[in-house]
Design a protein around this nucleic acid. Structure first.
Length: 209
DNA sequence: ACCCAGGTGGCCC
DNA sequence: GGGCCACATGGG
């Protein structure tokens, strides 16, 4: 069977099994999104690195309790009281690193674009290159921000994707760039499809454990 | 007392 | 290009 068919078939099977993504994915796959929601997704994308989503939710709840809800709020608090910012995200683990990553990202967006809506108007490949230069933003976090926060058509690869690809023997090469190209070449270029598909891959991945 | 979770940077070869 | 380690929490 051709690759295109198998990749599409995988999507259809996952959709049939799980339906529209739920839980955290309800926000991440929501359309349309408010600016506030986009910024929460960007914050969550950094905090969830190698971390259980439950711990991230607790951190986001603490940020909201402290009225730190936007990227500008993070810039402000980071400037005024960085220790407090770090303390608020403690439950997400690796909090000293992630505090620095978040602050660097928030400052970069403010300085270079002003706000999320302006950022969204920038060309995808240029955005991706710029984000990848920031400390703490590797390919997965960058692509999650682009796909879910900014609704750009780019496929996110993670450990669950690799497990599924291995399990169904859809590819031998498991490198990030190869798998990303595999999905993108075999699917219509549609950010909504990419969002739902990746979410379903993660849901299925957890389900298999 | 373990094990794990939607990674990344810094080092080494 | 790849292998290894540190980074840290909360839940099973």
């Amino acid at each position: 069977m051709k690759r295109t068919v198998r990749i599409k078939k995988l999507y259809k099977e996952l959709y049939t099994k799980h339906g529209r993504p739920t839980g955290q994915w309800r926000l991440w796959c929501k359309r349309p999104k408010t600016t506030r929601e986009r910024e929460e997704i960007i914050i969550g994308a950094v905090l969830t690195q190698r971390t259980n989503w439950n711990n991230v939710e607790m951190a986001i709840a603490r940020l909201k309790d402290a009225r730190v809800c936007s990227l500008d709020d993070i810039c402000y608090l980071g400037q005024k009281n960085r220790k407090k910012l770090v303390r608020l995200i403690k439950s997400s683990g690796f909090y000293r690193q992630k505090g620095g990553y978040l602050l660097g990202l928030a400052r970069f967006i403010r300085k270079n674009y002003g706000n999320i809506e302006k950022m969204r108007k920038t060309n995808l490949s240029r955005l991706r290159e710029e984000l990848l230069c920031l400390k703490g933003l590797g390919p997965e976090t960058t692509d999650s921000i682009l796909l879910y926060g900014l609704e750009k058509p780019i496929f996110v690869i993670d450990e669950y994707t690799r497990r599924l690809i291995k399990r169904y023997r859809l590819a031998e090469n498991l490198s990030y760039s190869f798998l990303q190209e595999l999905f993108e070449k075999n699917l219509p270029k549609d950010y909504r499809l990419y969002q739902d598909f990746h979410a379903l891959i993660v849901i299925e991945g957890k389900n298999l454990l």
